[in-house]
């Protein structure tokens, strides 16, 4: 293996290590299942590494989140079709338990954590619930801009829309979340 390829591999390793946990939580908020979110993040990492590793490193973040977003949409489409098939098969009674997240399982690990961690976990649950009630594009814009720290141009590339749309979605998401969670949150 040449020195250049090794350097690129190390850089890619650093990049993926930097984004993987936040990507997992973002995917988990979208699909509400940790195992599925792990599969989605792994797919996104493999696709970025196998297809776009040769692109400039400063493009990786937007590309990675664009792939992740597509994977989440694919998952949601499959889940919707599966729900319809189950509803048809069971005479209109879909397994709602499959969709509803277990609040205990969905909560982050609190092992050995102080009260502050518990409060933070509760605040995160409220935030996740509020994000789940937003239009998908607004939730996406908020998570990419606020959680992942993408700038407007990167977010536009990841979401496949204009920078103006990103600003509008992010602004509306912030307003809606503030209104729902209140000034005293968390």
């Amino acid at each position: 293996m040449t020195e250049g390829v090794l350097d690129q591999s190390r850089e890619l390793d650093r990049f993926l290590a930097d984004v993987e946990r936040r990507a997992l939580r973002i995917a988990e908020i979208a699909v509400r299942d940790r195992d599925d979110a792990l599969d989605i993040v792994q797919d996104a990492m493999i696709q970025l590494a196998s297809r776009y590793a040769g692109r400039p490193a400063d493009e990786w973040r937007a590309l990675f989140y664009r792939i992740l977003r597509n994977r989440i949409f694919d998952w949601q489409r499959r889940r919707k079709v599966r729900g319809r098939v189950i509803a048809w098969w069971t005479g209109g009674v879909a397994d709602e338990g499959d969709e509803a997240p277990d609040p205990i399982e969905a909560a982050p690990s609190l092992a050995g954590g102080p009260d502050a961690r518990l409060e933070s976990a509760e605040a995160m649950q409220q935030l996740e619930a509020a994000l789940g009630r937003l239009p998908a594009r607004q939730a996406e814009a908020f998570m990419l801009r606020s959680f992942e720290g993408l700038d407007v141009a990167e977010t536009a590339l990841a979401m496949g829309c204009s920078e103006g749309s990103v600003k509008t979605h992010h602004f509306r998401a912030t307003q809606a979340l503030r209104a729902e969670l209140g000034e005293h949150w968390p």
């Binding site: 976990a121 606020s146 959680f147 912030t174 979340l177």
Partner: peptide, 16 residues
């Protein structure tokens, strides 16, 4: 608000 949301999110990330 955004800063608070980011802090809460980062806390959930570090709690994995």
């Amino acid at each position: 608000f955004e800063a608070k949301a980011t802090a809460v999110f980062e806390s959930s990330v570090s709690g994995l």
